[in-house]
């Protein structure tokens, strides 16, 4: 069968490579989420202008430049200022910085979909500003941004393929190696595309499950 023997022959290294792809995506997603949460809080609830502008500039910059440029900058330009990063570290940092910008947009949209009346009601019940934010706005707003965050993770997984340019042995890197070694480019890249599609589907199905788990009937309408 076309390409199937490639899969059988190389499944061990491909599996390891898949592990790298998933690990890079997961680490950068989590790191990006932490940064994005911070940014979102600053953007929506801070009473100071300067940090708000700084976050806005950050988000626009990272959304307005290609991830390739960001990755190359972090990996190839950082030694000039004395920082030497491993391919894995560089990929995680670049993807996390990029993802933070996107995730903060999704979080912001989610939090902004919470009606202002909920916040006012919480304050009138005697909650402090941050009390209202943490126990009223966040639980609702996070649920609203869950589906975009899931999409972001899948997008990150697909984009992790560019980590091959900084020699991280993830899926694409390994597939390229196998293809070049066997001269079976069409089969290998078809198999690779199928792997990405299948894992991507599985990931988005999982996120759909998570979404349903946190779903509260009648909360958002």
């Amino acid at each position: 069968m076309l390409g199937l023997d490639i899969l059988i022959e190389n499944w061990q290294i491909l599996l390891k490579a898949l592990g790298y792809s998933l690990l890079v995506s997961l680490f950068s997603f989590i790191l990006g989420f932490a940064l994005a949460s911070l940014f979102t809080v600053v953007r929506l609830f801070s009473s100071f202008k300067v940090p708000k502008w700084a976050v806005r500039a950050y988000v626009e910059t990272f959304r307005g430049t290609p991830m390739m440029v960001q990755l190359f900058f972090i990996y190839y330009a950082s030694p000039a200022i004395g920082i030497n990063l491993s391919p894995f570290q560089a990929s995680v940092i670049a993807f996390a910085l990029n993802s933070a910008a996107y995730q903060s947009e999704y979080l912001r949209a989610g939090l902004m979909s919470v009606p202002k009346t909920q916040y006012e009601a919480a304050e009138s019940l005697g909650l402090s500003k941050w009390g209202a934010v943490f126990s009223v706005v966040l639980p609702v707003g996070l649920r609203a941004s869950l589906s975009s965050l899931g999409n972001e993770f899948v997008a990150l997984f697909k984009y992790s393929s560019i980590a091959s340019f900084v020699t991280l042995p993830e899926l694409f890197y390994v597939a390229r190696y196998i293809a070049a070694g066997s001269f079976r480019y069409l089969e290998m890249y078809t198999v690779l595309a199928i792997i990405y599609v299948v894992i991507g589907f599985a990931l988005s199905k999982t996120f759909r499950k998570v979404e349903r788990f946190f779903y509260v009937p009648g909360l958002m309408d």
Partner: peptide, 22 residues
């Protein structure tokens, strides 16, 4: 859905390096 699941990089390699085999 299937097309959207393929990374651009893989797509480019599939077309540029894979199609010559066809």
């Amino acid at each position: 859905d299937v097309i959207r699941g393929i990374p651009l990089l893989v797509m480019l390699f599939l077309i540029f390096y894979g199609f010559p085999a066809l």
